[in-house]
Amino acid sequence: MFKPSVLLLTVAAITTSVNAAEEVNVYSYRAPFLIQPMFDQFTQKTGVKVNVVYADKGLLERLQNEGQNSPADLIMTVDIGVVHDVKTRGLSQPVTSELLEQNIPQHFQDPDNHWFALTSRARLIYASKDRVQQGEITSYEQLADPKWQGRICTRSGKHNYNLGLIGSMISHHGEAEAEQWLTGVKANLARRPEGNDRAQIRAIAEGQCDLAIGNSYYFFKMLNNQENPEEIEWAKQVTPIAPNQQDRGTHMNISGISLAKYAPHKDNAIKLMEFLSQDEAQHMYADLNQEFPVKAGVQRSELLQSYLGDFKQDELPLVKIAETREAASKLVDKVGFDN
């Protein structure tokens, strides 16, 4: 059976009566409320119990330390960099599945089938409704324009989400031009990078800056946050912008899943992977989490669609962005972005 460790934040309690042998063990960086409904539905349909360890750090190190004795069947992560790390550290194994190949676009999966995206999210520009005119900014490149000096907020340049964006700039423009761009963005910061993506939206609402960079699903979950009405008011004061619609499209990142190298319940693990890639689970991701489904033909949430419509997405293979992460991190240090 699956035994929790000191890294355990929450163990999913699944009440469905099942045979103890019919189970699958998941190590997850994703928070419980984002994925537990899908696991419950999977158990209801298949009778396979999903045991989960949730943690915000240390899971890959745990896997390494456990080695062949690890009980983990699946690793769920956010951000292409972390997904890629699972493979490069030798913690995953390839999956042969026609269903996964069919459901998930090629640029959202590993060429060697070590990881697959389950959802995507856009790295948006947020603009003050009062202080930024419609159409005044339409691309990531324009964030370096001196007209925005002292008007931009963002979280740390070293955060995985920003490293992904910087990595995409390196992939599209080359390292030298990306450095010039990042230097320009730094010069335009209204404050030292701090907080999370929601904090950047709040900073615009409070007048600390006029533009910010943030993931799409944070904004849409803020608009629905009945437990904290302040977040609703903050979100209503900004306009979400999907950049680069006239050229390559908006940078996208993912949540992903990998089959653990020594998965003891491999068949059940692949069964869960396939379930999460199909229409029912993809609809749940869209409606409950305000994330973008990766399976073609699955509708986005009405709220998300009403704000962004059918915008153009950058289809650069994410593995290329993952491979630039080290260079992106060095650029952040080189330009002193977080100083």
Rank of each mutant, 00 (worst) to 15 (best):
M1Q: 11
A13H: 10
N19H: 14
N19T: 15
N25Q: 06
L34C: 01
M38G: 01
F42V: 01
K45Y: 06
G47M: 04
L60C: 03
E61F: 04
R62G: 04
L63I: 01
Q64A: 13
N69W: 04
M76L: 15
M76N: 06
V82S: 02
V86N: 10
V86M: 04
K87P: 02
K87Q: 13
T88N: 14
R89V: 06
H107C: 02
F108S: 05
Q109I: 09
D110T: 07
N113Q: 14
W115V: 01
T119Q: 10
S120R: 15
Y126E: 06
A127K: 10
S128A: 07
Q133S: 10
G135T: 08
G135I: 11
I137P: 03
Y140N: 04
D145F: 03
R155G: 13
H159K: 13
E177M: 05
R191P: 01
P193D: 02
R202V: 15
R202P: 03
E206I: 10
K221I: 01
Q226D: 14
P229E: 11
P229L: 06
E230V: 09
E231L: 12
I241H: 11
N244R: 07
Q245D: 08
D247F: 07
G249N: 07
G249T: 03
T250R: 02
S255H: 03
S258G: 11
D267G: 06
N268Q: 15
M273T: 12
D287I: 06
N289E: 08
Q290C: 04
F292Y: 14
V294Y: 04
Q299T: 12
S301R: 03
Q305H: 10
Q305V: 09
G309V: 03
L316D: 03
A327E: 13
A328S: 05
A328K: 00
A328D: 00
L331E: 00
V332F: 00
V332D: 00
G336W: 00
F337W: 02
D338K: 05
